[in-house]
Design a binder for these strands. Structure first.
Lengths: 337, 337
DNA sequence: ACAGAGTGTGCACACGTGGGCACATACGGG
DNA sequence: CCCGTATGTGCCCACGTGTGCACACTCTGT
């Protein structure tokens, strides 16, 4: 009576292997084996169990299985900034790949204020791995994850810690390629719009420009700090172009460059006639006819592929030394240079 | 020896409550209680256990806890099309809200070919809920989830099934509002660019336009089927504008409208001088100065809030009857009408 | 001194599964 | 008829936790 009341008040209990076993007149083990590919079981019986299971809507409980063998098949994906187009595209590709591998991505928004607590909570699951995409996760959390023994793979920011693998773009090389193209084309008066200072990627990309300019004996005439967003790029470019005469503008990413392009158009500066603008990342939008942005491709598929590769290697051998894989970007000539 | 070998070959075992208990000289139950807010435990002992746990990096295993009480705190989020800007923005907001509630979103890409198998697999977890965003999940899978007893909440597409709650925009009302504004402004020669036919939202939005035109005694001069993307919108608008003289173009979503806007500019059609273009959704990009798109806002925060609300109600009472909540869109006047 | 109330803690069970181990059955050869 | 092998299957333990229940201990009032 009390039991019955509880049954109906609570959710209906999930169908369990025991129930299926009783319905099929076999032992619970047989049901378990029926769902285990390599297991030893009479073919007819296996088929019968599958039929009954299907009719009852039974599937083995992945939680219980994970508890047993220590593999939850859950992977936390920490995204520094979900409002960034590049990170978003990146995550979409990553999610697709993980789904195909039967790994289940738990998304965590790093832009949120309560990120720290969120990570704390999600670390209570025996995650197969923690994948970091960009952003700046507090070191405290990195060391904690490391202590718990959850493998980490960072992309877009190199994390120097035991057991953390990295995949990162050669940022300086990317802007170097772009700057060289512009210098070769005769541009002389360079400006740079960077990202937030705490991102090493932003500093590296700036360095690439400076390298080329130094080598060519040219100054970096003006620079501004954007925030990797279209709006900030628009504002920064407006100021820069009003206060200086520039013929080349290198931007820390595509969003910034698109903002800058919009600003140039509003100010009546001809692109690419009087001014070259190049971005970084090669997001979808850069290809749109309205923008047709010359940029540096930061290859998403290749990067994701490497992340997955490192993940599988790490799972196969949890004790292996950390690795850092560097990805080569390349210049994508379009209509703004 | 064999044990030891296994220890080092496999991953290091996760710290367990038993280990902490031994280190603290208490029973395992005490450790469990130390991490259970309401539980009965001496304050000093609780503090000591917390300290030792922190030093060992112990956290209660959420998998085991979920197994015990039947609540995994995992929520699968099925996204119809991760390449759609609106769905992406929607998911980002949803993820943030779920994180804040200590619910962990497992993302599933509906655009992928192997979606069916992915859902099958993820249903093996005792999910707290399954949230659908747009797209068209096969009915087969809906009934299966329903049979297993996992609550479902659908947004962007109404699913008529037992135990499925819905949150949906009044699509026809949205385009009706927009079309009325255009008719009042004197537009007479209307075109419409829709989405894929299997989406009811697309048909509903078209109907809103037709309603207003019929009432005003105007014809729908031309229409085309886009695919909710910028590229398809560009192509569709190019054809439509070349073959017809239109002074108003209503688009099934903002991406399509942005493509249409770009096409109009390339064809030298003045917007909004000679042609009004309106979109639907009010994605971030619609606000950018380059586009400044007049559109119909399909409010993301409000929709997500309702989804969360339904989720909590459903969890509190799994047997409650299904509900459908309709969201009112509103016209956002900007520079393209 | 003793009863009773109040406070804190340990034991043991249940959650659902995978798989090792032992056992049962069948079968073929000598 | 007996032994050895091949083939299936069932029993039972472990995974890590939360919590009901019973028990131990302290304290107060008479």
């Amino acid at each position: 009576m009390s039991d019955e009341r509880k049954r109906t008040a609570q959710r209906p209990r999930r169908v369990t292997a025991q129930t299926v076993a009783e319905a099929a007149g076999v032992s619970r083990s047989a049901v378990s084996r029926a769902f285990t590919p390599g297991a030893y079981l009479d073919a007819g019986k296996r088929k019968k169990i599958h039929e009954i299971a299907a009719s009852m809507g039974y599937q083995p409980n992945a939680l219980a299985a994970g508890l047993k063998d220590g593999r939850s098949h859950l992977v936390a994906v920490f995204v520094g900034n979900m409002r960034s187009a590049y990170d978003t595209e990146f995550v979409m590709v990553l999610v697709g790949r993980l789904n195909a591998l039967n790994k289940w991505p738990i998304l965590i928004d790093g832009g949120d204020g309560s990120t720290k607590q969120a990570i704390q909570q999600v670390l209570r699951y025996p995650l197969d791995a923690l994948i970091l995409r960009g952003g700046s996760m507090q070191n405290e959390l990195v060391t904690q994850s490391s202590k718990i023994g959850i493998p980490m793979i960072s992309s877009g920011r190199i994390v120097e810690a035991k057991g953390v693998d990295n995949v990162c773009c050669r940022n300086a090389k990317g802007t170097r390629l772009a700057a060289e193209v512009l210098v070769d084309a005769g541009r002389r008066r360079f400006g740079y719009i960077g990202g937030p200072e705490q991102f090493s990627s932003s500093a590296d990309r700036r360095q690439g420009v400076v390298d080329v300019l130094t080598h060519a004996g040219l100054p970096l005439i003006a620079e501004a700090t954007g925030e990797f967003t279209v709006e900030a790029g628009f504002r920064a470019a407006t100021t820069l172009l009003q206060e200086n005469t520039l013929d080349a503008l290198v931007c820390a990413n595509d969003a910034t460059a698109i903002g800058a392009l919009t600003a140039a158009r509003e100010l009546g500066v001809a692109v690419p006639g009087a001014l070259s603008i190049v971005g970084f990342d090669d997001i979808d939008m850069a290809r749109w006819p309205t923008f047709d942005l010359s940029t540096v491709c930061n290859p998403i598929y290749e990067t994701v592929e490497r992340v997955i590769w490192l993940l599988e290697r790490r799972l196969a051998n949890p004790a292996k030394p950390s690795e850092t894989i560097l990805i080569d970007p390349y210049f994508v000539p379009r209509g703004t240079h």
